[in-house]
Amino acid sequence: EVPFKVVAQFPYKSDYEDDLNFEKDQEIIVTSVEDAEWYFGEYQDSNGDVIEGIFPKSFVAVQG
């Protein structure tokens, strides 16, 4: 069931425009499960802007 919160276990950096880049310990709200390997989610950056994109499930852990 979406949405749910995950926390980055590792930093994720990608050159693909659709990917969500983040640092370790970033909290991310997952709004869609793309497939067995990928989530789609969002978070607010330090400027208060909402950043969204896809990212690999293996880089995050589900909270709770």
Rank of each mutant, 00 (worst) to 15 (best):
E1I: 13
E1M: 13
E1S: 12
E1G: 13
V2K: 06
V2Q: 05
V2R: 05
V2S: 05
V2N: 04
V2P: 13
V2E: 05
P3T: 04
P3S: 04
P3W: 07
P3I: 04
P3L: 06
P3G: 05
P3H: 05
P3Y: 07
P3E: 03
F4P: 00
F4G: 03
F4H: 01
F4M: 03
F4C: 06
F4Q: 02
K5R: 12
K5F: 08
K5A: 06
K5W: 11
K5H: 08
K5N: 06
K5Q: 06
K5V: 13
V6Q: 03
V6K: 00
V6D: 00
V6G: 01
V6I: 01
V6N: 01
V6S: 02
V6A: 04
V7N: 04
V7I: 13
V7A: 02
V7M: 06
V7S: 04
V7Q: 04
V7G: 01
V7D: 01
A8Y: 03
A8F: 03
A8K: 00
A8P: 01
A8S: 09
A8C: 06
A8I: 03
A8T: 03
Q9V: 14
Q9P: 02
Q9T: 12
Q9L: 15
Q9Y: 07
Q9D: 04
Q9M: 15
F10R: 14
F10E: 08
F10P: 00
P11Y: 05
P11D: 10
P11A: 14
P11R: 08
P11V: 06
P11E: 09
P11I: 04
P11S: 13
Y12E: 00
Y12H: 07
Y12N: 04
K13N: 10
K13M: 10
K13Y: 14
K13D: 05
K13R: 13
K13A: 07
S14Y: 01
S14H: 01
S14T: 10
D15R: 11
D15K: 10
D15P: 13
D15T: 12
D15I: 12
D15C: 14
D15L: 11
D15A: 11
D15H: 10
Y16H: 15
Y16C: 15
Y16V: 12
Y16N: 15
Y16D: 12
Y16A: 14
Y16E: 12
Y16W: 10
E17R: 10
E17S: 11
E17P: 15
E17I: 13
E17L: 12
E17T: 11
E17D: 10
E17W: 08
D18R: 15
D18A: 14
D18T: 15
D18L: 15
D18S: 14
D18F: 14
D18K: 15
D19Y: 14
D19K: 14
D19R: 15
D19I: 09
D19E: 14
D19S: 14
D19A: 15
D19G: 15
D19Q: 15
L20D: 01
L20T: 01
L20S: 00
L20Y: 01
L20I: 05
L20R: 01
L20G: 00
N21M: 07
F22W: 02
F22S: 00
F22V: 01
F22A: 01
E23C: 09
E23F: 06
E23G: 07
E23W: 05
E23K: 06
E23M: 07
E23A: 08
E23S: 08
E23R: 06
K24T: 07
K24R: 09
K24E: 06
K24L: 07
D25W: 11
D25L: 06
D25A: 06
D25C: 15
D25E: 06
D25Q: 05
D25R: 04
D25N: 11
D25H: 09
D25F: 10
Q26H: 03
Q26S: 02
Q26M: 05
Q26D: 02
Q26R: 03
Q26G: 02
Q26K: 04
E27T: 09
E27H: 07
E27I: 15
E27S: 05
E27Y: 06
E27C: 10
I28F: 03
I28H: 00
I28S: 00
I28G: 00
I29C: 14
I29W: 14
I29T: 14
I29D: 04
I29P: 03
I29H: 04
I29A: 03
V30C: 04
V30F: 04
V30Y: 03
V30S: 00
V30Q: 02
V30R: 01
T31P: 03
T31M: 08
T31Q: 05
T31V: 07
T31H: 06
T31W: 09
T31C: 08
S32R: 15
S32I: 07
S32K: 15
S32A: 14
S32N: 11
S32W: 09
V33M: 08
V33A: 06
V33K: 05
E34L: 15
E34I: 15
E34W: 15
E34Q: 15
E34T: 13
D35G: 14
D35H: 08
D35R: 07
D35T: 08
D35F: 08
D35P: 04
D35I: 07
A36E: 13
A36I: 09
A36N: 13
A36C: 12
A36S: 13
E37T: 09
E37G: 09
E37I: 09
E37F: 14
E37R: 07
E37W: 12
E37L: 10
E37K: 09
E37D: 13
W38C: 08
W38A: 03
W38K: 06
W38V: 06
W38I: 05
Y39S: 00
Y39C: 05
Y39P: 00
Y39W: 15
Y39K: 00
Y39A: 00
Y39T: 02
F40H: 10
F40Y: 13
F40S: 04
F40C: 08
F40E: 02
F40I: 06
F40R: 15
F40M: 08
F40A: 06
F40T: 05
G41R: 02
G41I: 03
G41K: 00
G41D: 00
G41E: 00
G41F: 05
G41P: 03
E42I: 09
E42A: 09
E42M: 14
E42S: 13
E42Q: 14
E42H: 15
E42V: 09
Y43T: 04
Y43V: 02
Y43R: 01
Y43H: 00
Q44N: 09
Q44G: 04
Q44W: 07
Q44T: 14
D45T: 13
D45N: 12
D45S: 08
D45K: 09
S46Q: 12
S46M: 11
S46N: 09
S46Y: 09
S46T: 12
S46I: 12
N47C: 10
N47E: 07
N47D: 06
N47A: 08
N47Y: 09
N47F: 09
N47W: 07
G48D: 04
G48N: 05
G48T: 02
G48K: 04
G48W: 03
D49K: 14
D49A: 11
D49N: 14
D49Q: 13
D49W: 09
D49Y: 12
D49V: 14
V50D: 03
V50Y: 08
V50R: 13
V50H: 10
V50M: 12
V50L: 13
V50A: 06
V50T: 13
I51L: 13
I51D: 02
I51K: 15
I51Q: 13
I51A: 07
I51E: 05
I51H: 15
I51M: 11
E52S: 15
E52D: 09
E52W: 10
E52Q: 15
E52M: 14
G53D: 02
G53Q: 01
G53W: 03
G53V: 03
G53C: 05
G53R: 00
G53E: 01
G53I: 04
I54Q: 13
I54A: 11
I54E: 05
I54C: 14
I54F: 15
F55V: 00
F55C: 04
F55N: 02
F55A: 00
F55H: 02
F55D: 02
P56T: 03
P56V: 04
P56Y: 05
P56S: 03
P56G: 03
P56Q: 03
P56L: 04
P56C: 07
K57Y: 06
K57R: 12
K57W: 06
S58Q: 09
S58R: 13
S58C: 15
S58K: 14
S58A: 11
S58H: 10
S58V: 10
S58W: 11
S58M: 08
S58F: 09
F59K: 07
F59W: 06
F59S: 06
F59Y: 13
F59I: 09
F59A: 10
V60S: 02
V60W: 03
V60D: 02
V60L: 02
A61D: 11
A61H: 12
A61M: 12
A61G: 07
A61E: 12
A61Q: 12
A61N: 10
A61K: 13
A61R: 10
A61L: 11
V62L: 14
V62S: 08
V62A: 10
V62R: 12
V62T: 10
V62H: 12
Q63F: 12
Q63E: 11
Q63K: 13
Q63M: 14
Q63N: 09
G64Q: 13
G64P: 13
G64Y: 11
G64M: 12
